[in-house]
Amino acid sequence: TTVKVNGTKYKFDTPEEAQKFAKKAADKYNLKVVVDGDDLRVE
C-alpha cells in the first residue's frame, strides 16, 4: 500500500500502517485522506 503526500510516495507493508500514517499526515497538514484504489492520497 502506498500513501502519497505532497507528491512523495511512502510504501507500507500493511494497509493499517498506511492508514495510520495517512491520518497523521492529514491531521498535520490539515488535509484529508483520499482512497485511490488500493492506495491512499493525502490532499
Rank of each mutant, 00 (worst) to 15 (best):
residue 1 T to S: 08
residue 1 T to R: 11
residue 1 T to H: 12
residue 2 T to W: 13
residue 2 T to C: 13
residue 2 T to S: 08
residue 3 V to G: 00
residue 3 V to H: 00
residue 5 V to A: 03
residue 5 V to T: 01
residue 5 V to S: 01
residue 6 N to W: 13
residue 7 G to S: 05
residue 7 G to V: 03
residue 7 G to Y: 05
residue 7 G to P: 00
residue 8 T to F: 13
residue 9 K to W: 12
residue 9 K to A: 13
residue 10 Y to K: 02
residue 10 Y to I: 06
residue 10 Y to E: 01
residue 11 K to P: 04
residue 11 K to I: 14
residue 12 F to P: 01
residue 12 F to Y: 01
residue 12 F to T: 00
residue 13 D to S: 13
residue 13 D to P: 10
residue 13 D to E: 10
residue 13 D to F: 07
residue 13 D to A: 13
residue 14 T to Q: 04
residue 14 T to D: 08
residue 15 P to N: 07
residue 15 P to F: 15
residue 15 P to G: 04
residue 15 P to Q: 09
residue 16 E to H: 07
residue 16 E to F: 07
residue 16 E to Q: 10
residue 16 E to Y: 08
residue 17 E to K: 07
residue 17 E to L: 09
residue 19 Q to Y: 15
residue 19 Q to W: 15
residue 20 K to T: 09
residue 20 K to E: 14
residue 20 K to W: 10
residue 20 K to G: 07
residue 20 K to F: 10
residue 20 K to I: 12
residue 20 K to P: 00
residue 20 K to L: 12
residue 21 F to W: 10
residue 21 F to R: 01
residue 21 F to L: 02
residue 21 F to Y: 04
residue 21 F to G: 02
residue 21 F to I: 02
residue 23 K to P: 01
residue 23 K to H: 10
residue 23 K to Q: 14
residue 23 K to D: 08
residue 24 K to P: 00
residue 25 A to C: 15
residue 25 A to T: 15
residue 25 A to H: 12
residue 26 A to L: 04
residue 26 A to V: 03
residue 26 A to R: 03
residue 27 D to L: 11
residue 27 D to W: 09
residue 27 D to M: 09
residue 27 D to Q: 11
residue 28 K to W: 14
residue 28 K to R: 12
residue 28 K to S: 07
residue 29 Y to V: 04
residue 29 Y to Q: 07
residue 29 Y to G: 07
residue 29 Y to W: 11
residue 30 N to T: 03
residue 30 N to M: 07
residue 30 N to P: 04
residue 31 L to D: 06
residue 31 L to W: 11
residue 32 K to C: 13
residue 33 V to L: 07
residue 33 V to S: 01
residue 33 V to R: 00
residue 34 V to W: 08
residue 35 V to G: 07
residue 35 V to D: 07
residue 35 V to N: 08
residue 35 V to L: 10
residue 36 D to V: 10
residue 36 D to R: 05
residue 36 D to T: 05
residue 37 G to S: 04
residue 37 G to H: 05
residue 37 G to D: 05
residue 37 G to M: 05
residue 38 D to Q: 12
residue 39 D to H: 11
residue 40 L to Q: 02
residue 40 L to G: 02
residue 40 L to I: 13
residue 41 R to Y: 09
residue 41 R to N: 08
residue 42 V to A: 04
residue 42 V to I: 10
residue 43 E to W: 06
residue 43 E to G: 10
residue 43 E to I: 13
residue 43 E to F: 08
